[in-house]
């Protein structure tokens, strides 16, 4: 499966408070969360982004709070994936558990710019920059995490486990 979209590029250590501020932490439904995605980082993000667009950011993306509504807000805003050199650990596991694609690639962060069109192959993790005619690699997921992502997140995994138990 290919994910194709325009790049919105941000810096390092983007924390969950600017992705989904505390004042919106009472929300949990996707349609409500989508309206506030990246609100304290880039207040116009929701207006200017189109479905399928891709967030490219610096290291330690998603640091801070454990709020799962941060990756959920990004997913709900129809962003197709996030690419960063590294992710904070709770954001990382929340994204996997939600079945939301994230890719670790320092090369992409170094070379891609806002407005570039990327095409990401979920299976291989290869990121093609169609604007610059470049290809970047990303770190492959461990087998267990790839399995959860393939099942669409923790939901698919847990349903299978419960079925096997009975």
């Amino acid at each position: 499966m290919l994910l194709k979209g325009k790049v919105w590029k941000y810096g390092e250590n983007i924390n969950t408070d600017v992705i989904l501020p505390g004042r919106w932490c009472h929300l949990y439904l996707e349609e409500d969360l989508a309206k506030h995605c990246l609100e304290d980082l880039d207040p116009d993000f929701v207006k200017k982004a189109s479905p399928g667009d891709i967030i490219v950011a610096g290291k330690n993306f998603g640091c801070g709070s454990s709020r799962e509504i941060a990756p959920l807000a990004i997913k709900a805003a129809k962003v197709s994936c996030v690419i960063a050199p590294s992710f904070a650990r709770i954001f990382y596991r929340n994204a996997i558990n939600l079945g939301f694609p994230i890719f670790e690639s320092d090369e992409c962060y170094q070379k891609a710019e806002t407005g570039d069109i990327l095409e990401v192959d979920i299976a291989t993790g290869v990121i093609a920059n169609l604007t610059k005619n470049q290809k970047y690699s990303s770190t492959p997921f461990p087998e267990f995490m790839r399995m959860i992502i393939q099942k669409g997140g923790l939901k698919g995994y847990v349903l299978e486990r419960m079925k096997n138990k009975t």
Binding site: R67, I90, R93, N94, N97, L98, L154
Partner: peptide, 14 residues
């Protein structure tokens, strides 16, 4: 360790 809500739901279940 801190985790997200899906992890909590998973732990409640299994």
């Amino acid at each position: 360790a801190g985790v997200g809500s899906s992890d909590i739901a998973y732990a409640w279940a299994v």
